[in-house]
Every structure is written in C-alpha cells, then in structure tokens.
C-alpha cells in the first residue's frame, strides 16, 4: 500500500459528526478498508471529537479540529489535533463495565471504547494544542 496521508478539518459543533462519517466512508473506500474497520475508526474518532467539543472549548468561539489518517504497513495511524484546554484521555482509568443496570456508572465510557478499539494511543501537548496519535492494526477486532 502506498503511503498517502488524508487530512480534513471539523468545526466544533456536533453536526460535524456527519462530515466525519462521510469523509471516513470516502477515504476508507478509496484505500480498500473493510466496512467493519471504517465503523470502528468512525466510533473512535466520534468519541474523541465529542469529548473535545464538549469539554475543550470554553470561549464560545469557532474552533477547528484537524483529523489526519495515514495508512502504513499493516496499520492505520490517526492523529487528532485541537487548540482546546489541555486534556490527556490516556490518563483515564478503565471504568468497571461488568456491573448491573443499577450500579453501572457511565463516566469514561467513551474513553474505554477508544482504548478497546485502538492498539496504541499517545498524547502530547504541543504549545497550545492537544495532539493525540492512535494506531489500529488491520484485522484487529475489538471483541
């Protein structure tokens, strides 16, 4: 597979989840990803993007979140950059997901899902930016 980068920007509003989905479908088909792979990349990026725009910006201004996908040998690399407040999702513990309806707490669920779906997650604060790099192996199944 030829190394080729694919990058796009999303505005900080929830309706941009549709743009995320459209872009992933388009790019995924171009490089021959399975529909399962596209679904799982979409879910991981959705959880991250939703977190960023829900908690990252306090100034009421428009911001851009940059998403970059790079296929490498046997791996898809994702990078998400935003200029919101510093937040390291890798620092969160797994919630207890083996519980009953009454006991189940829902905090941290999105991050738990991201950790289950991806093979590698690395956070860096660069200047005023959060930079999160994720890797997912081809053929890795979350379940």
């Amino acid at each position: 597979m030829k190394k080729k980068e694919y990058s796009f920007e999303l505005k900080n509003r929830l309706s941009e989840l549709d743009t995320l989905c459209r872009n992933l479908e388009k790019y995924g088909r171009q490089i021959g990803l399975s529909s399962k792979m596209i679904f799982e990349l979409n879910l991981a990026l959705d959880e991250l993007f939703t977190n960023i725009i829900s908690y990252g910006f306090k100034d009421g201004e428009e911001h851009r979140v940059r998403v970059t996908l790079t296929p490498e040998k046997g791996v898809i690399c994702l990078c998400i950059e935003d200029d919101g407040i510093a937040f390291d999702p890798t620092a969160f513990d797994h919630p207890d997901v083996s519980c009953s309806v009454a006991q189940c707490k829902i905090g941290g669920l999105g991050i738990h899902i991201i950790k289950k779906l991806m093979d590698d997650i690395c956070y860096e604060r660069c200047g005023n930016k959060n930079v999160l790099r994720l890797k997912k192996k081809f053929g890795k199944s979350a379940s």
Binding site: V97, V101, L109, H112, I113, L117, A142
Partner: peptide
C-alpha cells in the same frame, strides 16, 4: 453486528 459489538465492548450486553 457492528452495533451489537459496541454494546459488548461497553459490557452492556451482560445486563441489558
């Protein structure tokens, strides 16, 4: 299948 898998990853399939 993919939707069910999300319930499984979250562990929600064990009590819903």
């Amino acid at each position: 299948d993919y939707v069910k898998e999300v319930f499984e990853i979250a562990g929600f399939d064990s009590f819903l």
